[in-house]
Amino acid sequence: MSARNFRELGNFLRARRESLLPQDVGLPLGERRRTPGLRREEVAQLAKVGTAWYTWLEQGREVKASAGVLLTLADALRMTETECAHLFALSGRMMPQRLPVNEPPLEAALQRMLDDLSFQPAYITNKRWDIVGWNNAACAVFGDYSLLEGDDRNLLSMLFANQAHRELLVDWAEIAPAALAIFRAETAHCVNEAHFATLIDRLNVKSETFRQLWARQEVLSQLTNIKRIHHPIADAMSFEYHSFLLSDGSARRLTVYSPQEVSRDKLQALLPVQRLNNIMRLEKEHK
């Protein structure tokens, strides 16, 4: 990689940083700023990298960044897919797939099956734990998956890099390490696949807790089948859940949540709200 590449990379990062306002990335506006955009230390904080290291990167010094760090910088600077690809090109790296290669769309029959489970939250995940299909009840309880893209719609990413999802889970402290141990056991044969490595690299950068737990090398075969939720509208909810491997050889799993006791009535009350949100989102998309 030439000195010119490093300079162009620094210029591109600076331009993206200066194009953003604090409120664009969830930061308070604070005092009046002498220069436009975010400060370098704010970008470093969002990307969880050192301020000095990020400053060197912007200054065009010969600093090398891993694919995971580049993806985190792209997220911090709210880059589009095109901008992210340009970032990787300037860095002399091949942009990794955000989703598994050749992931087929969910079959219509499977989506109908999910929709028929109208009073049971349910979703389908692939072998990387990306959520590839879901029903309205799942969105009502866990949040609208259609608003998430790429790695953000991955169960591990939601556990470790999505604060709202973390706050939803009453027993997060027990669920997170157990889920990670199960993921390690289930995906040991996939360690050399690029999109698995990219996911781990990204979470190692974004979450100190993930990094510590991943280093433990723990494996586990199953979780308890009760999940307790602290829902922002319905408050306390609990579900019994089961996971089934699909018989089509795809390594995809169907996970179904059955509401317990008063949670049934709470779920029924949430469903019309979610349907209305879906209608409003579709209308907004078509404007």
Rank of each mutant, 00 (worst) to 15 (best):
E8K: 09
G10S: 02
N11G: 15
D24H: 09
D24A: 05
G26W: 11
G30K: 06
R33S: 05
R33L: 07
R39F: 06
K48E: 14
T55W: 05
W56E: 05
W56L: 12
Q59E: 11
L71V: 00
E83K: 00
A85E: 15
S91H: 02
S91E: 07
M94Q: 15
P96Q: 03
R98Y: 01
V101L: 12
P104A: 12
P105F: 08
L110T: 03
F119M: 14
Q120L: 04
N126F: 11
R128H: 10
D130M: 05
C139H: 08
S146D: 15
L147I: 05
E149G: 13
G150S: 10
D151P: 15
R153I: 07
S157D: 15
E167M: 09
P177L: 11
R184H: 02
T187P: 14
N192K: 14
L199S: 06
L203H: 03
F210E: 07
R211L: 08
E218S: 09
V219C: 11
L220F: 00
L220E: 11
Q222F: 12
I226A: 01
I229G: 00
H231T: 01
P232H: 07
P232N: 10
S250T: 01
V256K: 03
L276E: 14
N277K: 09
N277C: 09
N277F: 14
R281K: 10
K284V: 08
